[in-house]
Design a binder for these strands. Structure first.
Lengths: 250, 250
DNA sequence: ACACTTAGTTGTACTGTCCAACTTACTTAG
DNA sequence: CTAAGTAAGTTGGACAGTACAACTAAGTGT
């Protein structure tokens, strides 16, 4: 066992003059956020265009919003993520969940780096209001443009989509993509857009209503056809886990 | 927007002489592993006793195995985790999954630090063979000793247990805690130990067998009572997602 | 031979999905 | 003004899988 460093074990460092040997190279540490919303009947991600200053890797490429942790300003990782999210979208309290971390010697040409990835869901209404100048929404599946992403951001994005779709199968996550008031068919369409697959109407209704996470409000939406009951997310709406899945035929 | 750093946007740094300004303080970066096994009919975690060299925080406390990333030896985070796992247990290829990351200005008295936490499952048979001298198994729930843990490791451990128990509800994870050959009742007991709750026998059987992840082998275990069919994990046994849960009465 | 224990099966009740057909209410075309 | 069209929401039957209890089968110890 060679070159033992600090935290791990008991061995300790030789001298001890320099505060228990913290003088070894540290990886770069960043936070990246995968921000989803639904626009134009499709799932979209927010990407930012990278700069092309000298020494900047992946100049002019698209990337997930993010950046290095600022040890002076960020109290913790989540605060860092919220700061970057607010800077790019103006949204302050969306659904925010940690996705995972990616770190290796090669993912950033500037050196060993590790990024902490988060993913956020914001409602369509908030998606356009205070967007940063260098940020832009891109559709996920479908005929949309597929920009090449910087670093390993393609892999991170992939993981985020998979996590989102997995969780949608048995939780109430898509409710965070809805405006404050919505109808059940609208909610169902959101689920269908995220899953990219039609769902069963009656099963969806019974399950949604028995899940006790949305409540009907005393209003109706006067659609072009029949009027529809409006619902709202219940106060303490932690994601709820469902039992089965609901598939539609064909 | 002040003090923009590298990766994020386009602004770039003033001078550019020092390779696009990477000369800002970086957080300490470590990897910690929550290693579970089942011993003596109870879920156990591996903890290591910290040293008491000068400048070492939490001297003599118990902690999760882990330590700083070594940018010279570790190609990526997972390799770092596997290295530390092998150092402490001798096990080389267990079930290993990323759990999440914890980072803040205060979690380590030595400065802003971020840890990447993993969790591993190893079979009982491998739990004792090549244990490091400073490592020890601790039972999780039950009357066992509850050692105070260093850093925020209590929180990380908590998260690992919750993740494990959540996943057990609808996946085949506990199979990784089993020896190569096992009987269905043994597998069920493992599930029950992890969940700390009795399960329904017949529902467990039908679901396990229809899940297509274990296969009967041509042997029987000659228990003290009836002989029981032996099973083995199927080759490419990625965790399988089940539909519902199975509860036993009372 | 007997009680005791555990592996594994069987059968009934119940819950919730899958699926199609239906009713209700509003819009638009003629 | 009426008829056709469309979307919201309900109803009912087929089916699958869990919850639960009672059962059979095969070994052990006294």
């Amino acid at each position: 066992m060679v070159g033992r460093q600090g935290q791990g074990g008991g061995a300790g460092n030789k001298a001890g003059a320099r505060r228990a040997g913290l003088d070894f190279p540290r990886p770069l540490t960043s936070v990246d956020i995968v921000i989803f919303t639904i626009r134009l009947e499709a799932l979209h991600v927010l990407l930012v265009r990278r700069g092309h200053a000298e020494g900047e890797p992946f100049p002019d490429a698209q990337a997930l919003p993010g950046g290095f942790v600022d040890v002076a300003r960020d109290r913790d990782l989540e605060a860092c993520a919220r700061r970057k999210l607010a800077e790019k979208t103006g949204v302050v309290s969306p659904y925010l969940e940690q996705l995972g971390s990616w770190g290796s010697a090669t993912r950033d040409p500037r050196g060993w780096s590790a990024t902490h990835a988060y993913f956020a869901l914001i409602p369509a209404s908030a998606a356009e209001t205070a967007l940063a100048a260098d940020a832009q929404w891109f559709p996920l599946y479908g005929a949309g443009v597929k920009p090449r992403l910087a670093f390993d951001h393609q892999e991170i994005l992939q993981a985020a989509v998979q996590r989102l779709r997995n969780k949608v199968e048995y939780t109430s996550l898509p409710a965070y993509l809805m405006p404050e008031e919505f109808t059940l068919p609208e909610l169902q369409r959101t689920y269908e857009i995220v899953l990219d697959r039609p769902l069963e109407k009656s099963a969806f209704r019974t399950r949604m209503l028995s899940a006790d996470l949305i409540e009907p409000i005393d209003k109706m939406r006067k659609g072009p056809n029949r009027p529809a009951q409006l619902y709202r997310l219940k106060a303490a709406a932690a994601p709820v886990y469902f039992a089965r899945t609901f598939n539609a035929p064909e």
